[in-house]
């Protein structure tokens, strides 16, 4: 039987006291487009356990993570194998909404530890200070010239959603930039 390989299957997780980098493969990701003022948006929020966040650059966490991508667009993220699409479709009913499974579009790199902000700041123009980009914030931006969705979680933990075809490049870049925090001699 064919083995399912994640985009970073060959990436070895690294960890030091200051920094941990690892892939979280195969998360279920649904792109959701719906009018935020509609009944369907409220019903979908109920089904997922939290209202769809309408403030730009924020995410909500309940049964799934709800990341704001645009004024009428969200990324719903749940654990591997979960039928989020079915849940959302059932909640939306026949309402006008776009519900697309994009799980294979991006993989997720977890960057955690007290040095995570320093590492990401090497390639990201956003202000990542906890006062501005603390837990519950998310943003679509560029990291090392690759388009990513950044989500800040509790502690100094980030999830970096990166397109599958860019994942290898971004992992290489992260490892290169992280050298000083991992005690690795630069190549």
């Amino acid at each position: 039987m064919a083995e399912r390989l994640s985009p970073l299957a060959r990436f070895t997780p690294v960890s030091s006291g200051d920094l941990r980098i690892a892939e979280i493969p195969f998360l279920t990701q649904i792109n959701l487009r719906v009018d935020p003022k509609s009944r369907a948006a409220a019903d979908i929020g109920l089904a997922l356990g939290a209202p769809l966040p309408t403030e730009p650059g924020t995410c909500a966490s309940a049964d799934a993570d709800l990341l704001w991508l645009g004024p009428d667009e969200w990324l719903v993220v749940g654990e591997r194998g979960r039928d989020l699409e079915g849940t959302i479709r059932a909640a939306a009913g026949t309402a006008h909404a776009g519900i697309t499974d994009v799980s294979a579009q991006r993989t997720v790199v977890a960057v955690e530890g007290p040095r995570s902000r320093d590492l990401l700041a090497h390639g990201c123009a956003l202000d990542l200070h906890p006062r501005v980009f603390g837990p519950g914030r998310c943003a679509q931006t560029m990291l090392a010239r690759a388009q990513v969705v950044l989500a800040a979680r509790d502690g100094d933990a980030f999830r970096v959603f990166v397109r599958s075809s860019f994942a290898g490049y971004l992992a290489d870049w992260l490892m290169d930039a992280a050298g000083e925090y991992l005690g690795v001699t630069p190549r």
Binding site: P56, G57, G70, P71, A125, L126, A139, Q140, T141, M142
Partner: peptide
């Protein structure tokens, strides 16, 4: 107007 100030390269 949605995301706040961002680098020109994102546009």
């Amino acid at each position: 107007p949605w995301c706040g100030p961002r680098d020109e390269a994102e546009f």
